[in-house]
């Protein structure tokens, strides 16, 4: 973009008319930038279309009723059954265990960071959390499988090599930084005036944190927890490695199961030809996963919109 010297374009009058070449260039650039931004919308459409295509093909062969109500998932057997529930229960069991770990710990860290920590403690803890969040999930999965499960066996001898418990626990640790940073944002959004109001009455830090800041930030916290839950539901490598690949309809955290994501991985690793029913199942399961996580995320957005505290 060269700057046109005023003399070049000011042959007529005072030269206040639009500088033509620039105007064209500016227009071109703004259209180019807009196209780039619109690509993200295209991506969403591509996701929906690519999931929908093979999902529709899947339901031409399999009854929707069986898919939504069945409790047997054996699509690759010679006598295939297509009940999604074993995958769903497994997904929610591992996610629930993860949330049981991540919610109290993540909230505690967030409360500490926003209400107690000195500047120095903050500058130490924040990067530490970033490091935790930056470790690839496959590494967490390795750890759950090769270290946590053998460790748990010391206390629970009947635990199987693949189980929801250790996958869920490790996934919980993985999610702690997410819960902590999202809820800390919610705490920080609570105006200073409320805190001062409570301190002015002689409240101690923990009373301000738990009885003023936390209730005031409740909707933000709820939205943050939903986002974390959606992360847990969509998490793949930890459960694929540590929870197993056996679609069992159970709520026993000590036996192998298969989550929706683990099932997709399992089929993808095998040599499943395009167009086969096995190939279509991963799109049907993927579509189900997408709808569930989308619903959770949407719920989070709704909470933020509906219950946003107005302080002004």
């Amino acid at each position: 973009m060269s700057m046109a010297a005023p003399s070049e374009s000011s042959n007529a009058g005072l030269g206040l008319q639009q500088r033509r070449p620039h105007a064209l260039g500016e227009r071109f650039i703004s259209i180019l930038l807009m196209t780039a931004a619109a690509l993200s919308v295209v991506t969403t459409f591509a996701i929906v279309l690519s999931l929908a295509g093979d999902t529709v093909a899947f339901f031409r062969e399999v009854s929707v009723i069986e898919y939504l109500t069945g409790t047997l998932w054996t699509p690759l057997f010679s006598n295939p059954r297509f009940g999604i529930w074993p995958l769903i229960t497994a997904t929610f069991m591992t996610s629930a265990i993860a949330m049981l770990v991540a919610v109290p710990f993540g909230l505690a860290i967030a409360v500490y960071l926003s209400e107690f920590a000195s500047l120095r403690a903050r500058s130490l803890i924040k990067p530490l959390l970033e490091v935790l969040a930056g470790i690839p999930t496959v590494v967490y999965g390795y750890f759950a499988l090769t270290a946590v499960t053998p460790f748990l066996r010391g206390f629970i001898p009947e635990i199987k090599s693949f189980n929801s418990l250790s996958a869920g626990l490790v996934m919980g640790v993985m999610i702690i930084p997410i819960v902590a940073s999202l809820t800390e944002d919610a705490f920080n959004a609570v105006p200073r005036g409320l805190r001062e109001g409570a301190y002015g009455l002689g409240a101690m830090r923990h009373e301000v944190a738990l009885r003023v800041v936390f209730p005031a930030a409740l909707s933000g916290v709820a939205a943050a927890l939903l986002l974390a839950l959606s992360r847990a539901v969509g998490e793949t490598m930890i459960v694929a490695l540590a929870a197993g690949q056996n679609p069992t309809f159970t709520l026993d955290p000590l036996v192998p199961v298969s989550t929706m994501t683990a099932y997709i991985v399992q089929v993808s690793l095998g040599d499943t030809p395009y167009g086969s029913i096995g190939y279509k199942t991963i799109f049907a399961v993927g579509a189900t996963l997408f709808i569930i996580t989308f619903a959770i995320n949407f719920g989070s957005t709704l909470i933020v919109r509906r219950f946003r505290e107005r302080y002004d």
């Binding site: 996701i47 999931l51 969509g234 793949t236 991985v265 993808s268 996963l289």
Partner: peptide, 11 residues
């Protein structure tokens, strides 16, 4: 940003 990464694989 909130879509599970495995969905991108299917995409």
């Amino acid at each position: 940003a909130a879509v599970p990464s495995i969905i991108y694989g299917l995409l």
